[in-house]
């Protein structure tokens, strides 16, 4: 029994002591009560991840090429694979089927009223294409492609965007060297808040604006699903 209030071991009522001694005798000294801890950071939970486990799951690629596996792929091989496994959703030339993503074209449209955001017109890094195909494509059969197949499909999608010549091959060295057309099209950091405030202490509450007119209605567009 502890007389010190800040001691971190569990205090037990005196009446329990004989039972504990009995338990200790019965269980040959097995530890009976844990200790109460507070504010400690080493909980000794989890176990070391093995190099093999990490290698199996560490599939991400960075713009500098970190993470790219050995292997290579050609546009010719990519075309065959694309037609077999990708064109059903993305169209034979990356034009997109239905509402599936358009992969090619759209260059020069970003500041228009109808921006077409594709790999070629919008994506800042080619590494992202490899990473995404590797982790998520084909849709419904993710992580089924080999490294060579992933290089080949990456090459083919870049070729559809006129970013590679017909005879090009991609590998660990050539992929991160590709300069995407919209590489400098992105801005950081976030500039928000970017809209004018009002007086928070005394925001206008009366006669804050003139006549109000209706400029558009959802009914006229009529795309709301019926229940």
């Amino acid at each position: 029994m502890s007389k010190s209030p800040d001691r971190k071991s569990l205090s037990l009522p005196r009446a329990l002591v004989p039972f504990i001694l009995l338990a200790l005798a019965l269980y040959l000294g097995a530890a009976y009560a844990g200790s109460v801890r507070a504010g400690e950071h080493n909980y000794s939970l989890g176990r070391l991840a093995t190099q093999e486990e990490i290698a199996g799951w560490d599939i991400d690629i960075r713009p500098d090429g970190a993470g790219l596996p050995a292997g290579s792929g050609s546009i010719a091989d990519g075309e065959v694979l694309f037609d077999e496994r990708c064109a059903v959703c993305h169209g034979e030339f990356g034009e997109g089927a239905g509402r599936y993503p358009v992969l090619a074209g759209g260059i020069g449209t970003l500041s228009s009223n109808d921006p077409v955001k594709t790999v070629g017109s919008y994506w800042p890094y080619a590494s992202t294409l490899f990473d995404y195909i590797r982790r998520a494509m084909p849709f419904g059969d993710a992580q089924s492609l080999t490294a060579d197949e992933t290089y080949a499909l990456t090459a083919y999608v870049l070729y559809l965007n006129d970013l590679l010549d017909e005879d090009a091959e991609l590998d660990q060295t050539s992929l991160p060297a590709i300069e995407m057309p919209n590489r400098d099209g992105f801005t950081e950091p976030d500039p928000r808040p970017d809209t004018p405030g009002i007086s928070v202490e005394k925001p206008c509450m009366k006669d804050c604006k003139g006549a109000v007119s209706i400029t558009g209605t959802a009914r006229s567009i009529d795309v709301t699903p019926d229940d």
Binding site: T128, P189, D190
Partner: peptide, 17 residues
């Protein structure tokens, strides 16, 4: 990059918003 970036009128896009 492709998604969850905010395209502005001038054709640039904000990242990490």
């Amino acid at each position: 990059t492709s998604k969850y970036t905010d395209l502005m009128d001038d054709g640039t896009a904000r990242s990490f918003t």
